[in-house]
Amino acid sequence: MTTTRLPLFPLNTVLFPGLVLPLNVFEARYRALLRDLLELPESEPRPFGVVAIRDGQLAVPRGTGLPDESEESPPDPTAGFGADPMRSFYEVGCVADASTIRPRQVAGEGEEPAEGGGGPASYEVLATGTSRFRLLSVDASGPYLVGEVEPLEEVAGEGAGALASGVLLAFRRYQKALAGANERTLGPAQEAPDDPVVVSYLVAAATVLHTADKQRLLQAPDTATRLADELRMLRQEASLISKLPSVPGAEYTVRPTSLN
C-alpha cells in the first residue's frame, strides 16, 4: 500500500475530482497551510486534501477570538474537531490542486487582521479536485492538520457506459423540474461528456443533496455503482420537486463554493 502525507482542509462540503472549488481563507491554521503551498514551484502542483466534516461537527467560525487567531499563541489545528480529528471527518476525501492563490493584504469586513500586522489577512484560492484518497490517520503536531492518505483508484464497473446515458437523461429531467419549481427558465443543454467517470462526478456535484449523500457518491466502490445511485436519487428528487411550489437552495447546483 502506497501512502503519502497531505495537508488537510476540512470543509462542510464534498469536493469531487474535476470540479472547481473557490475558497476564501482567513483562519490562521489555513493561512499557514497556504503559505507552505506558496513555497512550492508555481509550475508544480500545489496539492492539499479536502475532507468533508461529518454531520454534527462544526469547524471554528470566523471572529471567535480563539487562541489560534491570536498573536501570542500558535494556530490550534484541532480547534472545532476535538482531540481525535479523525472522528470528525469522513474517511474518503479528494485531492485539490491550488492553481491560484491570491493573498489579500487588507482584511475585509468581519475578517481578523493577520498576526502581528504582517502578512496577508486572507487568501483567495481557486482549486480543482484531482483524485480521491482514503484518510488513514491525522497528524496534529503542526500549525495545520496533515493526513496520511492512500490514493483510491477509480474502477469503471459493469455497465458504466449505459448507466451514464441514463443518468444524463434523468439529470436533464431533474434540471427541468428544478427550474420549473423556481419559476426559472432552463438554458440550452450543454454538450454532454462521454466519459462515465466525468458524468458521475459532474452530476454528483451539481445535484442538491445532503453532505452525507454526496459523500456516499464520492466513496462509491466503482463508477457504475455511483451512477446507479445517482439514477435512483435523480428520479426520486425530480418526483419530489414536481410536487413542491418552490425549491430553496437550487442556486447551489451551479458550483460548490466554500468559505473557510
Rank of each mutant, 00 (worst) to 15 (best):
E71I: 07
A98N: 04
A96Q: 01
G93F: 12
V60I: 12
R62Q: 14
L58Y: 14
G110A: 09
S70R: 13
R62A: 13
P113A: 05
D76S: 06
S88Y: 04
L58T: 15
A59I: 14
D97L: 09
I101T: 00
V95P: 02
D76I: 02
A107N: 03
G80C: 04
R104L: 13
V60W: 00
T100Q: 07
I101D: 00
G93N: 09
V60L: 07
T100P: 00
M86F: 13
R104V: 05
S88K: 11
G118M: 15
V92P: 02
P67V: 03
A98S: 03
V92Y: 11
P74N: 03
P75C: 04
V92H: 08
E69W: 00
F81Y: 11
G63D: 12
A107W: 05
R62D: 10
V92C: 12
D76M: 02
S88A: 15
P113T: 03
P120T: 03
Y90A: 06
D76T: 02
A83D: 12
F81H: 07
T100A: 08
P74M: 01
S73C: 12
A59S: 15
L66C: 01
A121C: 14
E69I: 02
C94K: 10
P61G: 00
P120I: 01
S99L: 10
E71Q: 08
Q57I: 14
A79S: 11
G117W: 08
F89I: 15
D68N: 08
P113G: 01
E91L: 12
T100S: 05
P75L: 01
A107S: 11
C94E: 02
G119F: 08
E111R: 06
S70M: 10
E111P: 03
E109A: 13
P74G: 04
V60Q: 02
D84Q: 12
V106A: 14
G116P: 05
E91P: 04
P75M: 04
R104H: 13
T78G: 03
I101L: 09
Q105L: 14
G80Q: 00
G108D: 10
A59K: 15
G117N: 10
P113L: 05
G82E: 06
V106H: 12
S122F: 08
S70K: 09
D97K: 08
P77Y: 07
E72T: 05
A98P: 00
A79Y: 06
E112L: 15
G80M: 02
V95E: 11
E112C: 08
F89Y: 15
G82N: 07
Y90R: 13
L66I: 01
P74C: 00
L66M: 01
E109G: 08
G119S: 04
M86S: 14
T100K: 09
E109T: 10
D76L: 07
E115D: 14
S99P: 00
A114Y: 07
S99D: 03
S70G: 06
E115A: 15
G93H: 11
D76C: 01
S70N: 07
V106Y: 12
T100H: 04
P74L: 01
A121N: 06
D97E: 12
A96G: 02
M86L: 15
A83L: 09
A114V: 08
E69N: 08
S122H: 11
P77T: 10
A107K: 03
R87L: 12
G63E: 12
V95C: 07
D84R: 13
R104A: 12
P85D: 03
P103T: 06
G119R: 02
E115S: 15
G117E: 08
A121E: 05
